[in-house]
């Protein structure tokens, strides 16, 4: 089980991710509505995988990614954001995120993206 943290300012999106992610593979340890809440959750518990929105109040996604990667270089971050600014998406990946999924997304898109994110380790485990 991977410990998953969901970061998104939209309640709908958070609920959708919670509902759609593979419960056999991911254990949701928390949901944050912005970067600063995500950071404080990250301090409190061990987290393997993070889904990250980019535009949020308080601390935005890019800064949050930078901080998370600084705290734990092995954390796997999947950016889930609307694609109105490709450059910001790229910046997120340059700062340490591993993948990008465009909003809106379907349940299967999310599942395959999350699997892809942790796939290397899955191969080792199998």
């Amino acid at each position: 089980m991977y410990r998953l943290l969901i970061v998104d300012d939209s309640k709908l999106i958070r609920q959708k991710i919670e509902r759609e992610c593979d419960q056999n593979l991911f254990h949701i340890v928390g949901s944050a509505i912005d970067g600063s809440q995500a950071l404080s959750l990250f301090f409190q518990q061990a987290i393997d995988v993070v889904t990250m929105d980019l535009t949020m109040p308080e601390l935005d996604g890019i800064e949050c990614i930078e901080s998370l990667v600084r705290l734990d270089p092995d954390v796997k971050i999947l950016v889930i954001s609307a694609l109105n600014d490709v450059a910001t998406g790229m910046e997120a990946l340059e700062k340490g995120a591993m993948g990008f999924v465009t909003k809106p997304f379907s349940g299967s898109e999310l599942q395959s993206a999350l699997c892809e994110l942790v796939e290397d380790e899955l191969q080792v485990r199998l």
Binding site: V86, M90, E94, A113
Partner: peptide, 29 residues
């Protein structure tokens, strides 16, 4: 020029083994 910059950055990401190829396609400029 700005799109060219994105192309360069996108290719750099593709050459970065830590990024997941399939999770980059959405960013393809």
């Amino acid at each position: 020029a700005s799109d060219l910059d994105k192309v360069k950055r996108y290719l750099d990401l593709l050459f970065d083994p830590h990024k997941k190829q399939r999770l980059l396609t959405d960013l393809n400029p």
